[in-house]
């Protein structure tokens, strides 16, 4: 962590924010956002396809511009901030880490469902061998207990992870849920802990502050909350609230507000609000990035988006199973058709 700050801020506008614009970032957007974050004092800037390196696909949506072109531009545009990439083993490859390291990426976030940490060993070790900081990133952390997360985090630590995050990928946790998990991790681990919050239950900022109070020293945000589902913890609000609490962040809230208002909001196809579908994600514990895919399937097969999301929650699908959205939509359409033909 940089000296003189109470927690390190990692901004994921250019990675998690990518979901909200269906992975349609262009080079000019990337340069403007990196410059804005860098000037505001953000220490780490994450960039990749929303589903991590190699995520461009039918299943998750194709990137408008190849991510490595955008990553190269981000590395060039940053003066003080480190550039980070996220990758999910099973979607991206260790080779992707080697390529982005060549471009200047210094931080690798290796993301995995919160019960499957043992698939990251190869990738964490590759990141370390390249001299990168390796962050283990346990997704959908609401689906595992504090004790279960400790067990998984210890595996990540044993592979060489420098920092360990839990991600509330479904925006499904209360502050109590976050406190119990962070507390257990901080007690059990030798490495720093971080939290990545989503806002589906309108808890993202409160959960981030609670995580800090329990000992987390890394927090994630995105500018204007741009991100999967109802969005992420908004970086500029987190910075402002932190200042009010007397927490030293090293970032300038006013500069982040300017970035959110003048650069990021104009890019947004719609306001990042908690509408019914967004709230259901948090309520049913469904992976946030399913939202836009589910809306598209709902329209295509003429079934309610809320029903799709609730059924996905019932099935306990995990991040990456976007194909199941089509599966569920087709089944619901069949059921609806059967009901309509029954007198």
């Amino acid at each position: 962590m940089s000296t003189g700050v109470d927690y390190r801020l990692i901004d994921s506008t250019l990675r998690d924010g990518s979901h909200a614009i269906s992975h349609q970032y262009y080079a000019d957007d990337v340069v403007a956002i990196v410059r804005g974050l860098d000037a505001a004092g953000v220490q780490v800037i994450e960039i990749a396809h929303g589903d991590g390196l190699g995520g461009s696909s039918f299943n998750y949506g194709f990137s408008a511009v190849p991510e490595k072109e955008l990553i190269a531009r981000a590395c060039d545009a940053a003066t003080n901030a480190k550039i980070a990439c996220l990758m999910l083993p099973g979607i991206g490859l260790a080779d992707d880490l080697r390529e982005v390291n060549e471009l200047g990426v210094q931080v690798a976030r290796i993301a995995v469902h919160c019960t499957e940490a043992d698939i990251t060993e190869q990738h964490i070790k590759v990141a370390k061998s390249l001299g990168m900081e390796a962050i283990g990133f346990l997704m959908m952390a609401h689906m595992n207990s504090p004790e279960g997360l400790v067990e998984q985090a210890r595996l990540l630590q044993s592979y060489g992870a420098d920092t360990i995050y839990i991600a509330d990928s479904a925006g499904a946790m209360t502050t109590t849920d976050v406190r119990r998990r962070v507390n257990a991790l901080v007690q059990a681990l030798d490495v720093p802990v971080g939290v990545h919050a989503h806002n589906n239950l309108s808890m993202a900022v409160a959960n981030s502050i609670a995580a800090y109070e329990e000992g987390a020293t890394n927090l994630d945000g995105t500018s204007a909350g741009l991100g999967a589902g109802a969005g992420n913890c908004p970086t500029e609000i987190l910075a402002a609230v932190s200042t009010k609490y007397g927490i030293t962040t090293g970032v300038d809230p006013l500069a982040l507000m300017d970035l959110a208002e003048e650069i990021v909001r104009p890019l947004m196809p719609r306001a990042q609000v908690i509408d019914r579908a967004g709230l259901i994600l948090g309520y049913a514990g469904v992976y946030g990035s399913f939202l836009l895919h589910a809306e598209r399937a709902a329209e295509r097969y003429n079934v309610p988006v809320a029903e799709i999301l609730l059924e996905l929650g019932q099935r306990q699908v995990v991040g990456g199973q976007e194909d199941m959205i089509i599966d569920v939509a087709l089944e619901l359409a069949t059921q609806h058709a059967a009901r309509e033909t029954t007198p």
Partner: peptide
């Protein structure tokens, strides 16, 4: 081409699912 693999820990265990696009 591209191939993706996901592990799902749900209990009872899910049957193997494959989607081809």
């Amino acid at each position: 081409s591209k191939a993706i693999i996901i592990l799902n820990p749900a209990e009872p265990p899910i049957m193997m699912r494959n989607t081809v696009f």
